[in-house]
Write a protein that binds this DNA or RNA. Structure first.
Lengths: 268, 268
DNA sequence: GAGTGGTCTAGACCACGAC
DNA sequence: TCGTGGTCTAGACCACTCC
């Protein structure tokens, strides 16, 4: 069916700002089964970024400020900020401060770029051709793909992403309606399905399967391909929190598209 | 032209045990431009694993032991062990101890499996067909791929990996001779090229490019493919420490092989 | 009960950046 | 100069595991 590759944003961690007022005997040790302080601080920062209150480039509370606001020691504040920095969510400059990092694509993992951005970065016009965006009740096959019961309400969108006038990717996507209620209303000219989803339901886990084949005539026509040109097909399932949110089949003409992935291992 | 996908092992960090005797005024703070203590400890542990002195499942020094041996505070020992654990190199069980983790394939990132293991896991016989394994002097094209000067000594191996009697992957690999001097002597029946390389020159960085095409007749024959079946081609460049070590083109029949990648994001 | 990791504190010195 | 992060210490309490 269809293929497309957009940005997967970092960040996980559920819940909103909910860093409870903290009825904990702050001073001493104690941590009676509750969440560690550093993690609580991380949650609150992640939530601030999620909610849009903190945007890339914005300054985050300094360690000293966190010490005061949360009533923790500097080591604890440091750990929270350091771990978020290691995770790529923040950037720190000694002497200057801590800042929200540019919303990195999936960091070191697979660098799957936002197709729209990618196209624009090449100086071309991005144009989506929306073939459908409906509400459906899951049939057996769809239910299996999203691991839900038959009849569950889903969105089903099919979009062809064009670079200038050339179709580059065919995206066929199923979305769990309960996880992204507004999906049916999106104007794909304003944001790609994945852009929307990563904002609404931040990706916690993604599973990919890449293969290739000769496309059937219909797909070949949609992608404006010559005969005997294979397509590169990427199937992607994404989870948010703990449930499957979306299944996408992203199909591209192999002659015009290659997937790239790069990663580093650093232990220092 | 060849393709194969093996395990990429974790771990980075250069140098051997070299944790200098540490002429640092231990007691106080000070860190006059030298390496932080926690990183030094990490290096030493990584080196122990690298050298084979510590194997998966082995117990690592406890925090208390590190405190004594390195003359650091427990927080520092804890940081070293915790970071290596987060990186997937170690496993900790509260109350029990710290252990070397099973040599994880690239962890959460791309799970690219060792083709030999993968085949055996499916209960089939793995059989390599070695077409060549020569020493060559880099020509212009090869020099560009490995980012070295023309004439640099390289190994060039071509192997077809079979599952039972079916060719599954064609691997065409260039290896920088100076980085893996023994490569030319490997018996690929004993270990795959990548197995050897990950042991000799642990991967610090990898770059992938995946595409597909219709194979030329020669490749098609080597892979025992029918006409009009596309191949899935993965090109991979791997770095160790700071230099490019290997370039591989891994080609598989799309009808018999799919790449999978899965990753999780966790910020807690 | 002894040992282990998990967390936390209240100090500290340092290099760096902004003013 | 003052605030920032980067590192480090020498204690501490806790829950857990293993014996």
């Amino acid at each position: 069916m269809a293929c497309l590759c957009e940005a997967l944003y970092t960040a996980s961690m559920t819940e909103a700002d909910a860093f409870l007022p903290n009825s904990r005997d702050a001073g001493a040790v104690v941590n009676g089964g509750s969440e560690p302080r550093y993690r609580e601080i991380k949650r609150s920062i992640v939530a601030s970024i999620r909610s849009g209150r903190l945007k890339p480039g914005d300054r985050v509370n300094s360690e000293a400020e966190i010490v005061e606001r949360f009533g923790v020691s500097r080591m604890t504040a440091n750990r929270a900020l350091r771990e978020l920095t290691d995770a790529g969510l923040l950037m720190r400059r000694s002497g200057a401060g801590t800042f929200v990092a540019d919303s990195k694509p999936i960091g070191h993992m697979i660098e799957i770029r936002n197709i729209a951005d990618e196209i624009r970065a090449r100086g071309h016009a991005y144009r989506p051709r929306v073939l459908r965006n409906d509400t459906v009740k899951a049939d057996a096959r769809q239910a299996a793909l999203l691991d839900v019961r038959v009849g569950t309400r889903l969105f089903h969108s099919v979009v062809v992403h064009h670079e200038a006038d050339f179709p580059l990717q065919l995206e066929d996507r199923l979305v769990l309606a309960s996880a992204a209620p507004g999906y049916g209303e999106i104007d794909f000219h304003q944001q790609t399905p994945n852009e929307y989803l990563t904002r609404i339901a931040p990706i916690a886990r993604a599973e990919h399967r890449v293969t290739s084949m000769l496309p059937d005539p219909e797909v070949r026509a949609l992608l404006g391909m010559r005969e005997l040109d294979p397509v590169l097909v990427m199937e992607r399932r994404t989870w948010s929190s703990d449930h499957l949110v979306s299944h996408a089949v992203l199909t591209h003409p192999a002659s015009r598209y290659a997937l790239t992935a790069t990663f580093e291992v650093k232990l220092d």
